[in-house]
């Protein structure tokens, strides 16, 4: 995989944040940043300019929808992938409407998350034949 960019994982739950970070790491040599809420995501986004943001939609401090709106204001081209589980698919649809690139089910088995994430990264950063 050619992608070696910077990834920002924003997830409120510590255990999921760790799991997702490990999965991202297992996919290659990425530089990884972690955020626990929308506020932190916005600050980190401006300082490290990640190539890809994995964004939890269901957060107490500034939810996914507000965060994605703010991110798009800072950088209209920012690449955001929404992290969802079974519950919040309506919120996820709203995020996609607001410009999220894709959504990723975080409640799947690890290998499936890895495969899907690899597919998303490939679609966004894969080599486009000249």
């Amino acid at each position: 995989m050619p992608f070696t960019g910077k990834v920002l994982v924003c997830e409120e739950k510590v255990h999921l944040r760790r799991l997702l970070s490990l999965i991202v790491k297992s996919l290659g040599q990425h530089v990884l940043f972690e955020a626990a809420d929308g506020e932190e995501t916005l600050l980190l986004y401006q300082s490290v300019k990640p190539d890809l943001v994995l964004l939890d939609v269901n957060m107490r401090q500034r939810d996914g929808i507000q965060t994605i709106q703010a991110l798009k204001q800072i950088d209209p081209d920012c690449l955001v992938v929404i992290l969802t589980s079974l519950v919040n698919h309506l919120t996820a649809e709203e995020c996609l409407r607001l410009g999220a690139a894709d959504c990723l089910r975080k409640d799947l088995p690890r290998e499936e998350i890895a495969v899907q994430l690899a597919r998303i990264i490939d679609a966004c950063f894969g080599d486009i034949p000249a």
């Binding site: 739950k13 255990h15 999921l16 760790r18 799991l19 490990l22 999965i23 297992s26 589980s85 975080k106 409640d107 799947l108 088995p109 690890r110 998350i113």
Partner: peptide, 12 residues
């Protein structure tokens, strides 16, 4: 979600 994390983390 927490159960899925426990499972995933133990896999790592």
């Amino acid at each position: 979600n927490p159960l899925a994390s426990i499972r995933g983390l133990t896999e790592f």
